[in-house]
Simulated assay, not measured.
Amino acid sequence: MSRLTLLAATLLLLASAPVGAQSQPAQKGPNNNAVNSSDQNNSKAPVAGRNSFTEGQAKSRIEAAGYSNVSGLQKDDEGVWRGKADKSGTKTDVSVDFQGNVNPAQ
């Protein structure tokens, strides 16, 4: 194959590639967070789902939401961490769902 033919074939391939296919930036993702910050619940009750928080992370989220003396944390069949904690001098049941929502028992 001659150099001219090879050059022509290469230019033809480059010209047929979609414009911007290589330079388009990746999307930053949808506007719904996989995990919410400790001060932003998106539900008033725990949301069932596969929970990747460790027991220590669940405890830290509960404490960041203003609770203390967190105890008895167990992950239930719906993926929700449940336990007991104190807030404003009152012992209450609390939960942390897979989105990081911290809620008192309803």
Rank of each mutant, 00 (worst) to 15 (best):
V80H: 00
D76A: 02
A58N: 02
K59R: 15
A45E: 08
T90V: 15
A34I: 09
S43Y: 03
G29Y: 13
R50T: 13
Q22W: 09
L4D: 04
G20K: 07
V96Q: 03
N103W: 00
I62T: 01
V35P: 00
S95Q: 04
Q74C: 01
T5K: 07
D97W: 02
E63D: 14
N33G: 08
W81H: 01
L13F: 15
K75H: 05
V96F: 02
A34F: 14
R50N: 14
L11V: 13
A105L: 10
A48Y: 11
L12S: 15
R61T: 05
S88A: 14
V102W: 00
Q106G: 13
L13I: 13
Q22I: 11
N32G: 03
N31F: 06
T5M: 11
Q106R: 14
N41C: 05
A65G: 09
P25K: 03
K84G: 02
N36L: 01
F98L: 05
D39W: 02
A65H: 07
A8N: 10
N69G: 04
Q99L: 14
F98S: 11
A85S: 05
D86P: 01
N41I: 03
A34H: 13
L14C: 15
P18K: 06
A48N: 15
N103Q: 10
R82F: 02
K44F: 03
L73P: 00
D93K: 11
R50D: 15
A105M: 12
I62L: 10
E78M: 10
G49Q: 07
P104L: 01
P30I: 10
D77A: 15
A58K: 01
D93G: 14
A65E: 02
D93P: 03
A105W: 13
S95H: 00
L13E: 06
G72Y: 08
S60I: 00
L11R: 04
A34P: 00
V19G: 11
G83Q: 06
A45Q: 12
K59A: 13
R61Y: 14
M1R: 12
A15M: 15
K59N: 05
Q57W: 13
G100E: 06
G29F: 07
F53I: 12
G100L: 05
L6G: 05
D76Y: 12
D93N: 15
A9H: 03
G29M: 09
P30A: 11
L14M: 15
T5I: 07
V80L: 02
E78F: 09
V35S: 01
Q99S: 06
V102G: 02
A45G: 10
S71Y: 09
A21Q: 13
L7F: 14
N33M: 08
N103C: 08
N69S: 13
A9Q: 08
A17D: 05
A45T: 14
I62C: 07
